[in-house]
């Protein structure tokens, strides 16, 4: 690991000033950043430790019905908050399907959003990677690429964003609150992460010094509590990234889908909102043929980036499973294997 300066500012303004300088980066719990630094992939010259910044570790119910989650709330604390899990069950299930208990105890909400889009070639400093070294090329294109992106990729980069948490969040129209050099602003989570295009090294819409201070779930996100699931296929039962995943949330009224939300994980450089599929579902009666039609719409633009055409079919089946389980109703308790399609299931 390259040496670095360490600073622990006392307030957000000092943190932004310190992190605006070239080579500086924020440190929260470090579960992704320290791993990348140990591998020589990230080489910051200064870490700005934000873990002690006051007021960022709270969950607040706002007067307009929104929920504001401080950026320093730990993933495990949010997932195990019974009231949170009851109102936003797909978010809690996604959190518990990610990483390990140890990592969830450490990892923060803001850090989860800011984890890097990555693949094995990004990690291997002997390989060419445009994301790590702009202009170097992409060894993944002709390498082991069965787990890579099938949506939104470019010749520049075919890596996927590994967050589970972000998938239901983007489906529920989550908003990111940011403090920066020019004050406070907010962005839909949908536009926080960028597709690779010609500049895969530019991963987010954030500017130097920008600090995510909170995540907000708007009031309408509560409408899906009765019918929301996150389903994730992995190469082992637990503690693995998604090969593909889907968050499905339905508002069902008198046997009809009033509104549907759908997003996919493990398929692109960002959490992938499937708006066309949502339109297919809206106003219809929930049934298997409708779910298949929605799944086809969600993957209509997909194309293999290598030896991964199977993911297009797999992702469609996961969408169908997530919709089927969501329509059957949110279980009273998150299953023993969160997100797993192999859990004992009702209605599948």
């Amino acid at each position: 690991m390259m040496n670095f300066d360490y600073v622990r500012p006392a307030n957000v303004a000092d943190a932004i000033a310190a992190a605006s300088e070239q080579g500086s980066t924020y440190l929260a719990s470090g579960t992704n950043l320290l791993d990348l630094m140990k591998g020589g992939i990230s080489r910051p010259s200064r870490l700005v430790d934000v873990t002690r910044l006051p007021g960022l570790d709270r969950v607040e119910h706002l007067s307009d019905g929104a929920l504001r989650i401080g950026a320093l709330v730990r993933n495990a604390d949010l997932a195990h908050d019974a009231e949170f899990a009851r109102v936003y069950p797909a978010v809690a299930e996604a959190l518990l399907s990610g990483a390990s208990a140890q990592l969830r105890n450490a990892a923060t909400v803001g850090g989860n959003l800011m984890q890097r889009t990555r693949c094995a070639y990004f990690y291997d400093v002997a390989s060419a990677c445009n994301r790590r070294w702009p202009g170097a090329g992409c060894d993944a294109l002709k390498g082991e690429n069965r787990l890579h992106a099938v949506l939104g990729w470019s010749e520049g980069c075919i890596a996927t964003h590994p967050s589970d948490f972000c998938v239901p969040l983007v489906a529920l129209d989550a908003v990111v609150e940011i403090e920066g050099r020019s004050g406070r602003r907010e962005l839909p989570l949908e536009v926080l992460h960028r597709l690779p295009g010609d500049t895969p090294d530019r991963e987010t819409a954030l500017e130097p010094g920008d600090l995510i201070v909170a995540l907000r779930l708007p009031a309408a996100a509560k409408d899906f509590a009765a019918h929301a699931r996150y389903i994730k296929v992995r190469e082992r039962t637990s503690y693995a990234f998604a090969v593909a995943s889907a968050a499905a949330a339905l508002r069902i009224e008198n046997g009809t889908i009033g509104e549907a939300r759908l997003a996919l994980g493990g398929v692109a450089a960002k959490p992938w909102r499937a708006c066309e599929a949502e339109q297919v579902l809206a106003g219809k009666s929930p049934d298997a043929s409708l779910y298949r039609e929605a799944a086809r719409a969600a993957l209509a633009d997909a194309r293999p980036s290598g030896n991964n055409a199977f993911k297009i079919e797999l992702a469609q089946r996961i969408v169908v499973r997530a919709l089927t389980l969501a329509a059957a109703g949110t279980p009273a308790r998150i299953s023993a294997l969160p997100g797993s399609p192999f859990s004992s299931v009702a209605g599948a």
């Binding site: 320290l34 791993d35 591998g39 495990a76 450490a106």
Partner: peptide, 27 residues
């Protein structure tokens, strides 16, 4: 592994289990 993948370094910090390999002492 020293990279947060194996759990051999698990300790309790303020009562919570974490991977001590991915935790800076100074923080």
């Amino acid at each position: 592994c020293d990279r947060g993948q194996c759990g051999a370094c698990t300790i309790l910090v303020d009562g919570r289990r974490i991977n001590s390999c991915l935790a800076l002492a100074v923080s």
